[in-house]
Amino acid sequence: MGALPAMKWKFGILAGAAFSLAACGNQSFQDRAIGLMLEEPNLAHAAGQFPRFAPLLAAKRGPALDVQIVQSGLRGGFLRESTQGTIESWLGNDGVALIFDRGVLHGTRGLGAGMLASDVSASANAILAGRSGEVDRIHTFLNGNDIAVIRAYKCTIVNEGSETIQLDSGATSTRRMVETCFSLDQSFKNIYWVDTSRGRIVQSRQWSGEFVGQLAIQTVYNF
């Protein structure tokens, strides 16, 4: 079996994502019109790549993440910008960011409901250890009234056994972990595929909050 011709993977744009669900029409025209009528200062990088992204891309320290908003189909690429302990901040080429604790979604910036921060350490521990069981997690969302709202969830984690998935680097054997969480009025289901040889989450579907819902996240090694 010959190797597949290498398909060049591209960094898409997610900045419009949060908004495009709510409004239709030509966004850039609307922005320009507002700018003109209301004398809004223009953002330097209004079009094109976010300035902090270029050096990350040039450094080529991989891997990258391919992230898709399941509801809308919009997708974008992310590179790791910073690490502190187990927490990693990943930047999209349009300036939005996703924050993970060992691959479990910990925060969002410029995308979705505004997940300011979380405590998902118990989930990450169990998922990486392949351990089924009950854990708690906490998410803090910035709501539409600029108030940080802290919410706690009860979660059940189940090890569903091994599964081979296709990544751009080839077939990868993983352990499929499913986490079902609920609070009084919210519930969601996350799925993680943990690469058994690398010991890390290489693919996942995770809830980002009520505004855009599920994100489909996949590791990309060649970009």
Binding site: A22, R109, G110, F141, L142, G144
Partner: peptide, 11 residues
């Protein structure tokens, strides 16, 4: 409830 609860500004 604003149009976009978390805001569209960059990270």
């Amino acid at each position: 409830k604003r149009a976009n609860p978390g805001g569209r500004e960059t990270a």
